[in-house]
Design a protein around this nucleic acid. Sequence first.
DNA 1: TTGTATGCGTTATCAA
DNA 2: TTGATAACGCATACAA
Lengths: 345, 345
Amino acid sequence: MRATIQDVARRAGVSIGTVSNALSGKRPVAVETRQRILAAMDELGYHPNLLARGLVNQRSHVLSIVIKELSDLGLYGYSSALTGIQREANELGYSIMLHFVNGSTEDEIINTLNQISARRADGIIWAIHEIDGNREWVRHTLTGNYPPIIFLHMHPDPALNVVTIDNQAGASLAVAHLIEQGCRTIGIITGPADWWESKARLAGWRQTLEQAGLDTDVSLVLEGNWLAESGKNCMETLLNQRPDIDAVFACNDSMALGAIHTACRRGLSIPDDLLLVGYDNTPEVASYWPPLTSVSQGLLQSGQIAVEQLHQIIEAGVNQPVAPRQHIIQPELVIRRSSICEKKA
Amino acid sequence: MRATIQDVARRAGVSIGTVSNALSGKRPVAVETRQRILAAMDELGYHPNLLARGLVNQRSHVLSIVIKELSDLGLYGYSSALTGIQREANELGYSIMLHFVNGSTEDEIINTLNQISARRADGIIWAIHEIDGNREWVRHTLTGNYPPIIFLHMHPDPALNVVTIDNQAGASLAVAHLIEQGCRTIGIITGPADWWESKARLAGWRQTLEQAGLDTDVSLVLEGNWLAESGKNCMETLLNQRPDIDAVFACNDSMALGAIHTACRRGLSIPDDLLLVGYDNTPEVASYWPPLTSVSQGLLQSGQIAVEQLHQIIEAGVNQPVAPRQHIIQPELVIRRSSICEKKA
DNA sequence: TTGTATGCGTTATCAA
DNA sequence: TTGATAACGCATACAA
């Protein structure tokens, strides 16, 4: 069996309370006594039982991260945000529990929330991407008796704590850059239409083009599913129905990869015949051929901020409620050869 | 405050023990009483405190997954394995706790193990890739008083429980295929030399070539770091020092992407001038240009098996020790255009 | 400065 | 079939 505080106390010839004080430091302990206790802990290989400690302290020092589905983890966004979360959580002394949700059915959501609650997590980072109808289940998180929740990468909402990225601005950055390169007819390959990110990026594309008085016809808009394969297909269709395009904005890098594939297959050269911009700025895009211009989101940062903010709320406690805050991160454009018009240069 | 079993008992007008029996079903409860209890639980929104339950049961139903570093999560291997783990864990009623280790210093390893132990996880999946000297710290996991451990993706060891993939066989598959396509001079871009995977894949390359009586000179071996950027550079060097090569085996898909980049830059056509095979078979390789032949590892499966096996050991309990088992998964080759020699066809 | 006793929310062992 | 009561391992208020 593993050593308990009892064992340590006996071994050191002191009372159980003194041992507790020795390692918490909340009450003074004679220096000589502490020595003996420390030695005893060492010899016994003692480590406090965090379940017991959590029980009495009403504080588990666990943060629950909820992400959507499993294979989605491969999506660059999740890994990056998780990395940021991990770093900050580690800094602040939290452990991380990972929860997965497949669909977004109400039952599943509630089950997950209940499980988190049952485990007495101190806080939740809700990183499920928002899709149509989700506003519905978000309400559940408010009515039940749950720990504080931060919504990651969602549409801002004054009633909620959200840390998110300005997707519309990111798309604008990309499109404005293409316009500046002299492009006039710019197609877009979006993510799934029901994702919030997709809508925001599409809106950025549309708004920027409209401001410049350029074409935003539906024939320029193709809906992909974030995967490279869909980028291939969308590009195919796009080139067929709009042979006049001179640039494409792919809403993530994988789909941009697919777009490159199709361009190659049809003997089109990027950037000579067509400019291309992606989204995410994954480490790989610099090795695409040609190197891909892309929008960097600051996902690492978003994860970190989410934990920071959650921590503040937790520390404040239930009696000292913190007003909901929106934290919106501005993305940046990283320019590479795929979007540099040679003719212009 | 959240409702406790006490509250439910009071509300239903029964004793606390009866409530416990009602939801565990371990002792019979009058059907009418159970109704009342269920109703009370519902009204109060009661969910058992899993910390308390874990404390008394000596069983947390938590599995700790240890992975190396943070940004590494982007590496396809981790996400896939984690997905497999998640699925099976969910099936068997475990929650997942994620632990990150940056370096592999002894201190860090021990700290992590102690934290896991302190949280009373039921089992550990050690998914830190094995690099030089790791055999050293692995011993720590054996001496201390820790929950059962499964080593994921490590060199098999009869004294340990390991679930892993036959990397040497995977590399052989790739190289044999290239030889069959008529290649005679086959270069390799490896991962970091101190990773077990790198060594195994290199060994597979060497052995297969030697069996065929082909060149395995060191000038054919370039060391990358798994990232696409390194693939670019290695390919550059390789082409310079061995202009006679007719194929390259890149030890993961990202580096293969970099290799394609360099080939393009130098005006070389794949597969016309040079055949190429990658490793991992990520979803994206079908959208590379050309589509990349790659080795599929069955990572999802490995994660799942690891959980299964861990579960068995946990269920068996300390008194009924299960003999260590090695589970070795065989990879498969997925052939695409990058490795199909047109001349031969 | 240290020891004792009580409670955190469960489960399990007794009696009733 | 049900109700008290003792653990589980720790923290803390109170007494010494």
